[in-house]
Every structure is written in C-alpha cells, then in structure tokens.
Amino acid sequence: MAGSTLEIKNLHVSIEGKEILKGVNLTVKGGEFHAIMGPNGTGKSTLASAIMGHPKYEITEGSILLNGEDVLEMEVDERARAGLFLAMQYPSEISGVTTSDFLRSAINARREEGNEIPLMQFIKDLDKDLDFLEIDQSMATRYLNEGFSGGEKKRNEILQLMQIKPDIAILDEIDSGLDIDALKVVSKGINKMRGEDFGCLIITHYQRLLNYITPDFVHVMMQGRVVKSGGPELAHRLEAEGYDWIKEELGIEDETVGQNA
C-alpha cells in the first residue's frame, strides 16, 4: 500500500462551549506535503489538536478518518500508533524523564511485547539522527524539554518525528523561534522524511520555511474554516501581499473565529 490517507470532513470543534472550527474539509495523502497558513487565532492549532485528540477539544460535528478508520473513536495513544504524529506548538516539559528513555518507550509502544528494539540498535539510530539534526549528544540524557531553549524544543520535536517515523505528521509552527541555521536543519529533517509513505501538514506563518520545504498544496484558514487552497504560488502571494486580498475576495471583515462570514 502506498501511504496513508487522512480525511477531515466538515469538522466542527468547540472548546469550553465556544465553537472554533466551523466545518473544515481537508485530505492529506502519503507522499503529499500540505501547508496551512492563516492569521493568528483562526483555528490552525485547534485543527491540529482535534486531530491528535487533545482532551480539551470537543468534536461537535464531522469526521476524521485515517485509511477509512474512525480516528475520533480512538484514544490519543491509539491515534499515534495508528500512524499520526503532532509536533506541538508548545511541547510539554517532562521532568525526570530523559529524551532517550522517552524515545525508547515511544518506539517500543509500537512494537509487540517481547519484540522491543535492541538497545544497541536504538542507540545507533538515535546517534545518527542526533548528528543529522546537529543536536548535541547530551540532549539524549537531558530531561525531555526541561530547560530546553525554544529552538532546542523544536529540534527535539523533529528528532522524535525521525525516530518514530509516522505515516502522517502535523507540524504546528515548527519554524517559530528558530534561527536561520536551525531552520535549515529542521527543514533538512522534514525533507528526509519525504516519500510515498509519508504525508505532512505544515502549519506556518512564514514563507521562509516553505523556501526550504516546498509544499504541494497551500491552504488558508480564517474563521475556523479553510477558505482558500492552491499551490506553492499561493504562499508566495501571501508573503508579498498579506491576507487582505483574500478577505476582500471573500467579503470577510474579521478573520478570527469569533466571527461569521
């Protein structure tokens, strides 16, 4: 089978009784890179969280399917083992758990009991990815995200992506807070994942990330919906002209989710 398919249909999501997503439709297939752009507060992270199963978000309507299976019926860990991955905008700090112990647990969670990854192989693979992402070896023995700089957290998310090798990954502002060298390294990591068996949804505000990772599709979110889709040229136009032309085109005055078109 060539890759997985994630289908989001008419997705409505509320948080604390307030509707934030108002009918999102989107399909991501293995081999495809999608970018989602959009002003602040338009529902991008909400979409990512709803797909992963964040406990605070309530799905009020619509569906999410992974290879035809109902994702909304799955617990968070089941979604991950089914092939989904979310690089979070604000990763949690887990005191007392080293990056390496955590990664080994995550990898072994995907394997049958009794078929855990051999320690030597794990160390070898980890070293390779650390080198590739130009991460200091010491990060492996540091507590997960604790005291990491913003950039280190983002690199660590990509390290996890490379180690876990999901089928479909959502990257929420993986480029925020990165210096130019880190941006290149992180992009290199994401590009290395490219292939028939890997689909990716990249949430970003900036074209500069898309200079390194060329998306196949670009979507714009406003008011809790995907309001426009296109190819890489759409991102270039947004970079040059901002969002006003889209708002004008669609007659939107306030793009945030509190408003209705």
């Binding site: 968070v76 860990d77 991950a80 083992r81 991955f85 949690s92 647990s105 995550a106 969670a109 876990i164």
Partner: peptide, 10 residues
C-alpha cells in the same frame, strides 16, 4: 497528552 501523542499508553 504529550506522551500519549507519541503512542505511549496512558
């Protein structure tokens, strides 16, 4: 949530 999002059981 963060740990489980990596496939680790609750």
């Amino acid at each position: 949530y963060y740990l489980m999002s990596r496939g680790i059981t609750q």
